[in-house]
Amino acid sequence: MDSQITLRALSKFYKQGDEKIIAVDNVTLDVRAGDFIVITGRSGAGKTTLLSLIGRLAEPSAGTLAIDGVDLQSLDDAALSALRARKLGFVFQFASLIPTLNVFDNIRLPGLFADKLVDESRVTDLARMVGLGDKLNNRPAQLSGGQRRRVAIARALVNRPAILLADEPTGDLDVDTEKEMLDLLQSLNTQGMTIILVTHNPNLIAYCNRAFRMERGRLIENAPVIASVLSAVEGCEAIPNRHTEIASSRKPLLAMTFENL
């Protein structure tokens, strides 16, 4: 059993009056360690809800979910919190910084919950990697939307999570910055981090090894062939050795920094 994240018939319903809204519908999925999964789908399809279920930020209405073989349903608050702190990194769809803390403190905040001492150099390295090495003392209110998004990415990485759940992490970014961020994620992925990324940008499929689309709560895996057609660049699994290819095009500076991670 090499499945890191195991979803079995996972569903989430909402009641709105007499109407039953099915946000996530009977999703079964095995995510292996080191997978880079991209999920696309129309607005309201249930992508955010699915990510929340995987992080157990919401309770499933039906089905089961296990991470590293541990059924999350069986965990109490302490164990669940420890799992979130040590294994999971979240990047939310919305602005998600703590307004009272500066960039430096925002980035190292998850360390507080993992009982890990985050050294200063780790925080400054991460800030530099997301291009905000000079903004460490700024409050979130003093940052642009895209800068905040990048701080959120750095924060999600600070505890070296095994799994990154990223909900449109590049939503507010220009094409070049977006590429930098994705290169960063790509590199972390080659080092073994599992990434589940939700996006509206079909081009990002280029980075993944498995692509899914959500339709009214259902998760549908794209056939590799279709993926390659959909995407102008290499489709998922269409080119198995994509890691090496992308790695070779990586900027030397970034490559050097990643060694520190």
């Binding site: 702190a85 040590r86 505890n159």
Partner: peptide, 16 residues
């Protein structure tokens, strides 16, 4: 509310 939910997502316990 949202800020606190964020803390929880980062691994803050209910007790925290």
């Amino acid at each position: 509310q949202r800020e606190i939910a964020l803390l929880r997502a980062m691994g803050a316990r209910q007790r925290f």
